[in-house]
Every structure is written in structure tokens, then in C-alpha cells.
Design a protein around this nucleic acid. Structure first.
Length: 206
DNA sequence: ATCAAGATTACCT
DNA sequence: GGTAATCTTGATA
């Protein structure tokens, strides 16, 4: 079965994460995000990402330097940066680069691969969902965190541990990769730092 | 102490 | 297409 093959893939290592955020954002497409809790393993294929770089990018949380909120973003690549926004949602980022650079990749959408009942319970308070609702499980940064139970307590967690990590996969070809401008920001809107897999139905927006 | 804004989502017309 | 929901943080005083 396909899932068994995925589970045997290798965990992405430190060297993957300590590169620049644009490269990591591009290469994270197609990789398998793993969330383990209480013996349950949730799997999601990463289909949409955005890069943020505090050095030049006014929309990055890290642009104005380190604060209590964004401190994790300044750690060495390979940890998870989780923040709370609009009083409602959490968003999860993969921290990239070297220590004190303040770079990260926002995880914007997954294609869910297993445990659809649990994901549906968390998102819609029911396990039976329509095909349309299935597409709405993890097609946005806040939805990912709700479905995969990522919250404050996961901020700063290492991606090299066994609770949350990412598995390698075949690279997504250039032809299947779309690079465009980011969503939901008001500054640095011209930067083409968003990546998604072409024609994937779980991407948050065309 | 006060206040505005926010890397969003769901629901309304 | 418009907007309410809901709360934490960081800036300013």
C-alpha cells in the first residue's frame, strides 16, 4: 500500500532546514508532514508553502527584530514556529536558515492522507463528511493546525524529534510547481514567495 | 494603561 | 463580495 511506502521514507534532516527559506519552501512541496500523538499518526502531503525572510521582507514577523512572540523564528532551522492570530487561529511554520536569521516557511495547505475521521471530527465535529468537505479539511494554514492539533504547546518543537517531523519524497517537478505572490499580507506583496503544486485540489486558493 | 493590527476562516447577502 | 469572531502582542504614552 502507498502509505507503507511513505512511512518508510527518511526524515528530513538538519541540513535540509538550515538553507534559505525560498529553497526550503520550494522543496517542501510534496513532502510528508507527520504528526504523532497518543499512538495516532497523522499524515499530510505539503501542497502549498510561503517563504518569509526578516532581513528584507516587511511582511515577516521577524522584520523588526526578535520579540517574545517571534523568538522561535530566530532559532537555527529545523524547529516549528507556531503563532496565534486573529484571536482564533494558529499557523505553523518551518524555521529555516542559521541561528538569528529570522527566516521561516509558512505551511499553507496539506493533502490529507489518512485518519480522515479524526480530521473531520476536529474540523467539523462529525466523522461523516462529503467530498466537498474533504477538500476543506486542510486547505489553509489555520485549518491545518486545527485538524492536526497544532497549538501553542507545539511552538518551538524540534522537527528532528518523533512528535512532529517531515518525511522525504520524490521532488515535485518544475512543471508541476507554481511560484507566485503571497496571500493575506499587506506589505512586500510583490515578492513571488508562494509555492504550490499545480492542479492540486487542496491548495487554498488559485 | 490603552490600543490597533493581524501570514484567517466561516457565514452572510 | 462583505464582515464578524476573538485575543495576544507590540508599540506608544
Amino acid at each position: 500500500m502507498e502509505l507503507n511506502k511513505i512511512k518508510k521514507a527518511e526524515k528530513l534532516d538538519k541540513n535540509f532546514y538550515t538553507r534559505d527559506p525560498l529553497t526550503v519552501a520550494r522543496e517542501l512541496l510534496g513532502k510528508i508532514f507527520v504528526r504523532r500523538e497518543n499512538g495516532i499518526t497523522l499524515l499530510g502531503k505539503i501542497v502549498e508553502t510561503e517563504a518569509y525572510d526578516g532581513a528584507t521582507d516587511e511582511s515577516a514577523h521577524s522584520y523588526n527584530g526578535k520579540t517574545k512572540r517571534n523568538a522561535v523564528m530566530f532559532e537555527e532551522g529545523g524547529v516549528l514556529y507556531v503563532y496565534f492570530t486573529y484571536g482564533v487561529h494558529f499557523c505553523a511554520n518551518v524555521v529555516t536558515g542559521q541561528k538569528d536569521e529570522g527566516t521561516a516557511v509558512l505551511l499553507r495547505a496539506f493533502e490529507p492522507l489518512n485518519n480522515f475521521d479524526l480530521l473531520a471530527e476536529r474540523r467539523f465535529n462529525k466523522s461523516d463528511i462529503t467530498e466537498k468537505e474533504k477538500l476543506n479539511l486542510t486547505n489553509g494554514p489555520g485549518k491545518i493546525c486545527q485538524a492536526f492539533n497544532i497549538k501553542r504547546s507545539e511552538n518551538g518543537i524540534s522537527l528532528l524529534g518523533n512528535q512532529i517531523y517531515i518525511l522525504n519524497s520524490e521532488p515535485v517537478s518544475d512543471g508541476m510547481t507554481v511560484q507566485t505572490t503571497r496571500i493575506g499580507i499587506k506589505k512586500s506583496t510583490e515578492l513571488p514567495w508562494r509555492f504550490y503544486i499545480r492542479n492540486n485540489p487542496f491548495v487554498s486558493k488559485k
